[in-house]
Design a protein around this nucleic acid. Sequence first.
DNA 1: TATTGTTATACTCTATAACTATA
DNA 2: TATAGTTATAGAGTATAACAATA
Lengths: 138, 138
Amino acid sequence: MTENLEDELRLSVMRLARRMRLERDDGDLPDHQLSVLFVLLREGPISIGLLSEHERVTPPSMNRTVNAMAQWGLLNRASASDDGRRVLVDITEAGRRAAGEIRRRRAAWFSLALRELSEAERGSLGEAAVLLQRLADS
Amino acid sequence: MTENLEDELRLSVMRLARRMRLERDDGDLPDHQLSVLFVLLREGPISIGLLSEHERVTPPSMNRTVNAMAQWGLLNRASASDDGRRVLVDITEAGRRAAGEIRRRRAAWFSLALRELSEAERGSLGEAAVLLQRLADS
DNA sequence: TATTGTTATACTCTATAACTATA
DNA sequence: TATAGTTATAGAGTATAACAATA
């Protein structure tokens, strides 16, 4: 792949992600809360400390975010049974619903956008999906 | 493309973009300032109002951000010659350097990640780049 | 004594409302 | 009178430092 194509790929991924992030309503959750919900969906119950590392914020900041979200019923806090210091955070049914709404909205937009492509082009993107996944994990 | 593949593509794009955004140092610009620089690079001189729409913040908020960035010499403010009310914001050489640094860091990481793929796989991604670009614009 | 989380405090970014300057 | 931007003020989100509880 030429360097130019590499840049084009990188930039288009960034811009497409931004475009998808914009598929939200005014009443939706703040970005950082939404991001926490997605982590919980992906990783399951997790401590405040790990959550703060994952989201690249300090533990006090994450603590505050988690408290706000617990007040809204989006997640639960519970002491870890094996270590009284740790707090395990888990998503609630309401949290799942909130995250699901955004996900559906993004998926709906994306589906429509994909229909503008040809069958062959969609096939190319299908091949690419698994590769992008691998890159994200590296 | 099956619905499942559609989801996989959407999620992998989001996650790869996040992974790339993380390629920054502590001393780097705040996200919203960086985002403004990227808009200026892409769109050239632009008014405060359009900039605030593009970044989805209110005009007073963007005004503040622009002032801070002007103080750091990252951009220039100038009245529009044809309309004394409008302010045209343009990136400076220092702004270009700051944006370029992040871009280089992301490009370097991405280059390394791509080397883990086969030649054929990189070819697939090359094809996909232009399609992702088109989706981002839709 | 080290680790996990919390409280106290301050700074930054954001928003709404009210204001100024220009059209 | 309408529009582009600014100032005033307040509400979130974040950070650092100091503290409490548990290991």
